[in-house]
Amino acid sequence: MTKVAVLGGGSFGTTLAHTVASAGRACTLWSRDEEVARKINETHRNPRYFQDRPLSPDLRATSNLEEAAKDAPLVVVAVASSGFREVARALGDFVRGDQVILSATKGLEPRTHKRMSELLREETCAKKVGALSGPNIAREILDGQPAATVVASRFRDAIELSAELLHAPRFRIYGNDDLLGVELAGALKNVIAIASGVLTGLGLGDNARSLLITRGLAEIQRLGVKLGADPLTFSGLAGIGDLLVTCTSPLSRNHRVGAGLAKGETLEAIVERLGEVAEGINTARVCKELAAEHGVAMPIAEGVYKLLHEGLAVRDALEDLMQRRPRYEAIDLDYSFEVPRR
């Protein structure tokens, strides 16, 4: 009987399902695409991602959601945020209150600004919901390189079950009860990752990157804390951990969006070329709305939003950021001071 159902045959869903199956636990991968499911069962390869890489022969795939998730003690949803609610609603037809459901999607719903775990709560009867988030470049995990992730839930038994069923020799699980903080950190960091891609595209050096990561963390933490997150979450794997990797790895999708913009490509062309969803594009809009609603200063995110959606030039965005008034570093001290300008 299936122990773990992974929903979504994208790069991360495939990787997670493979990791679990390789560790000897019955795992079913659901893909909306019948062809993908069939190919995985027949050839043990995902025809869309990592075609060079054979998947665990024990991994089963299906395009029937109920078959995949009905009795699985643990369900991990790894579909793009734009399709998340729909999948959650379909799950709601058969999911039961003792099942644990995790979101592995790092995004926020447009307009409602809701987190993925909130969508799970709204669309199913499950209470034991949570999120899986951390510095997890799919390719590296698939190659068996050491990695770790955070499982966050308000329910301790949900965290314990997830750790038991998801851990693998090269894949560690850490628990966290700050679900809100972990989800926000995972979603918001994608906006900063786009800015980091811009630095790469402009050929800027490590000082600039370090500046971006540090101040980027400060502002997403500022918003997170305002919304009720634990500030310490942002110093953990799901916070600085994830931010570091997405801001430095050229494999990150959001990073590639920024790099493309810096090289003068249009957003449409970049999205077309990526083939997969870069959550940061949507999150930048949500982030701007949240920041305005809660009165939180997020200059970097605002710059990224203007780059993406208002056609601001890269040079101007950078100039705006560098010309801001001097201020203190501490996140809760929003105090700036005058310096004479030349």
């Binding site: 709601g92 039961r96 209150g97 669309e123 009867c125 209470k127």
Partner: peptide, 24 residues
């Protein structure tokens, strides 16, 4: 558990589907 309950005493989810609360 914070779920809504119908006049018949059945717990329902956000979409009005019956919940087996013993599972919780």
């Amino acid at each position: 558990f914070g779920n809504s309950v119908t006049r018949e005493g059945i717990s329902i989810d956000g979409r009005g589907r019956a919940i087996d609360t013993t599972r919780y």
